[in-house]
Design a protein around this nucleic acid. Structure first.
Ligand SMILES: NC(=O)c1ccc[n+]([C@@H]2O[C@H](COP(=O)([O-])OP(=O)(O)OC[C@H]3O[C@@H](n4cnc5c(N)ncnc54)[C@H](O)[C@@H]3O)[C@@H](O)[C@H]2O)c1
Ligand SMILES: NC(=O)c1ccc[n+]([C@@H]2O[C@H](COP(=O)([O-])OP(=O)(O)OC[C@H]3O[C@@H](n4cnc5c(N)ncnc54)[C@H](O)[C@@H]3O)[C@@H](O)[C@H]2O)c1
Lengths: 222, 222
DNA sequence: ATCGTTTTGTGAACCATTTCACATTTCTCA
DNA sequence: TGAGAAATGTGAAATGGTTCACAAAACGAT
């Protein structure tokens, strides 16, 4: 068990903290490009609309990375956070459903930059199977289990219609995949040892709608 | 001021509660299709991986919609929630940046179903301006302010490269738009009276990565 | 070397959200 | 009509997350 792992278990790092690590990582990437050597919790907070105390507390869960009076070393902190998030490596990703959203995702370069390499595509449409997207040939969903295992896939992105998503997930789980990012708007059943996250775009639009109709003044904006 | 508005102000409804209303709405739509007349907080909770107490508490912020011993009337509750969320009406939406993700979003039927009608498209690429997507002709970004006002746009979706997103947002804000959904991976500056939400896909992948590397056992899964 | 300034790291206090637990209501069936 | 079962609605307790406030550390200027 790594140190980070130990910490995460003991202190029960919250989902919000993890999400904010993503924000810090993004801000640090920019600061690095802008040739900053160090950055204070104040500046980091300002850039992501958070509070300095929040930044320091989040980081303190994982160690003590800063220098009092100076701030945090940009490059070093960025490396540390990427290690904590597990994006200091590459993950082998498969994408299932090469339709509207699937095709967009294949072309999304940010994923690759953060270590998520899409190396397999699957669909069940004969017109799509065999076609080439960004150098990857679309495989037949019927060969899912076999090809997932052969290609050593660790993460699967689901971009199929909601009506078939549960069947597809069942197959993915059976093939041994433990991490799933789901774009279909429904709650998928998976065993306890499989991590699944949902990307639900309607939710954010509905939040905007609620805010407008109710004149909502939330304590915090994400 | 509506009743709902009053409630939202006084009790300071949390972001999590609002997000869960979206989940309830989704579950109720399905229950309606399955011809359920009523549903208990227990069943609703099970379908969205929440607790019955959570469901009841959330709903109780807005009124008392159920019948003891019976549960909640499916159709009625669905209507109530859509009124609370402000999706019992249509919103006029413009989409800016008709690239990979933009094109996918234009074709996404769920938005329309929930009252978000994409009625305007903008881009700055001459090859795209004038082209037709799902019956909508792409406008020149240079006419943004004028056309946004003319078309009475209330919500804007941003799908342009991160490098230009701030400029685009500034123009949108100047045109009087008060609600923005942003897909570019950066924190955009907007005045306090403008609602902005970010859709950040890397965040969820990074969460999965963190979970795998750290053997994370969160209290709650979204 | 010392002083004033800056900024981290972190318990403790505070605040928000979730869960508990139960009185209350309604329904069903005898 | 009454008894038992089901399930809501909601204060109160428990838990979890954020902010405060300050001691400690490091730096730069003199
Ligand atoms: N389009 C969007 O912008 C958008 C946004 C958010 C969420 N989503 C969700 O993403 C999913 C896909 O949406 P879309 O607009 O890309 O739809 P789409 O119809 O364009 O694409 C779906 C793809 O899945 C393939 N497919 C169907 N059944 C399959 C199966 N059993 N195995 C493998 N592949 C199969 C189809 O051949 C098609 O290529 C839907 O669940 C949708 O709700 C879409
Ligand atoms: N592709 C994805 O799956 C994906 C996923 C998540 C987020 N995003 C984000 O969404 C944004 C768009 O990504 P994409 O992959 O669709 O890129 P893209 O390059 O395919 O599309 C961008 C579009 O914006 C247009 N554009 C550029 N400058 C403009 C301007 N000043 N005014 C109006 N239009 C302008 C371009 O002509 C192009 O059509 C990026 O910020 C990206 O990070 C993309």
């Amino acid at each position: 068990m790594t140190l980070t792992e130990e910490v995460a278990r003991k202190k029960r790092i919250s989902e919000s903290t993890i999400h904010r690590l993503s924000l810090y990582f993004r801000a640090l990437s920019l600061l690095e490009k802008e040739d900053y050597e160090t950055v204070s919790s104040k500046e980091l907070a300002k850039r992501e609309k958070l509070t300095p105390a929040q930044v320091r507390k989040d980081l303190s869960f994982f160690g003590s990375f800063g220098t009092r009076g100076l701030g945090y070393p940009v490059q070093e902190l960025k490396k540390r956070i990427s290690a904590i998030l597990g994006i200091d490596r590459t993950w082998r990703v498969a994408l299932i459903g090469i339709g509207n959203i699937g095709s967009a995702l294949v072309s999304y370069k940010e994923f690759m930059k953060q270590g998520f390499n899409i190396v397999k595509l699957f669909d069940n449409d004969q017109r799509k199977i065999g076609s080439n997207h960004k150098g990857i040939v679309v495989s037949d969903i019927n060969n899912l289990a076999e090809e997932i295992r052969e290609a050593n896939i660790q993460v699967v992105i689901i971009a199929v219609p909601a009506t078939v998503a549960q069947y597809v997930v069942d197959d993915i789980v059976a093939a041994g995949v433990k991490a799933i990012l789901n774009f279909a708007p429904l709650n998928l059943r998976v065993p306890d040892d499989v991590y699944i996250r949902n990307e639900n775009m309607s939710m954010e639009l509905e939040y905007l709608s609620f805010a407008m109709v109710n004149n909502h003044t939330p304590k915090k904006v994400r």
